[in-house]
């Protein structure tokens, strides 16, 4: 019920918080990998725009000296723009192949191709244990939930890539069939994560409140109960 309050929100909280989460995981990984961090530093100021067509979602990877920011909005010019379905974009991000051209990837690449080559190298080098990294950031239970969904989507990506490599014609058909369901999965995962986080926070706050109330009632039992001047309006 309380989540209804957020539904008319013009701001896409699921998108923003997902981007923030992925951003912190990547940047945590970079902290432990100085060589790759240097490689990012060499791209400082460069901006990669990612336009996902299915599901429709645009975001920007902005490189700084030490890390990467993932922003939902960016007003400057991107150096490189990628446009494609989530499947083709994911494949391009993780297949680790050396490519001279991106012609046959299903991803339209505009602008600086070299930047894309360097970013793919960085992604290839980055060794991220997503679940462990996430549990540091947000605690074990939500991390496990996300870990589950990442395993699901990793398997999904693997399956999809196997299909993709089989035949080009089949590829586009599979893509059309699969992509919406990945959209749903991602959306659902986002909601679950939110719910889990909110429940955690609520529980923590209720605990705190209980401690206060316990203390209050002890204090009052110890002193004069009639001196309670709190209003009882709420």
């Amino acid at each position: 019920m309380i989540f209804d309050f957020f539904s008319d929100n013009p701001i896409n909280t699921v998108k923003t918080s997902a981007l923030m989460t992925v951003e912190s995981v990547i940047n945590k990984a970079l902290e432990y990998d100085p060589a790759t961090q240097n490689a990012v530093g060499e791209l400082a100021g460069k901006v990669l725009a990612i336009e996902c067509t299915l599901p429709p979602l645009t975001f920007y990877a902005v490189h700084s000296e030490t890390d990467i920011s993932l922003l939902g909005q960016y007003e400057g010019e991107a150096d490189t723009t990628l446009r494609g379905s989530s499947l083709s974009l994911a494949t391009l991000a993780i297949d680790g192949q050396d490519r001279v051209s991106f012609f046959d990837t299903g991803v339209e690449v505009r602008g600086d191709h070299d930047l894309l080559r360097q970013i793919r190298k960085i992604l290839k080098n980055l060794d991220i244990d997503w679940e462990a990294a996430l549990s540091q950031l947000i605690g074990d239970v939500p991390a496990h939930l996300i870990g589950e969904s990442l395993r699901t989507s990793a398997k999904w990506q693997k399956d999809a890539m196997e299909r993709a490599s089989s035949a080009a014609a089949e590829f586009s058909q599979e893509e059309v069939r699969l992509t919406p369901s990945k959209n749903e999965v991602e959306h659902f995962n986002g909601e679950v994560k939110h719910l889990a986080n909110d429940v955690d926070r609520l529980a923590a706050r209720i605990n705190k409140l209980n401690v206060i109330l316990d203390k209050k009632s002890q204090d009052q039992a110890g002193s004069n109960t009639s001196s309670n001047k709190n209003n009882d309006a709420s």
Binding site: I11, T13, T16, S17, M20, G45, V62, L71, G72, Q73, Y74, E75, G76, N197, D198, R201, L202, R205, K208
Partner: peptide
């Protein structure tokens, strides 16, 4: 963090996104 249950990070992130900040 306690006051806004961490949501203030989201509010601030949105502020960053609308700032147009760049190099």
């Amino acid at each position: 963090d306690l006051m806004s249950g961490g949501i203030h990070r989201l509010w601030k992130r949105y502020t960053i996104e609308l700032s147009g900040a760049r190099t």
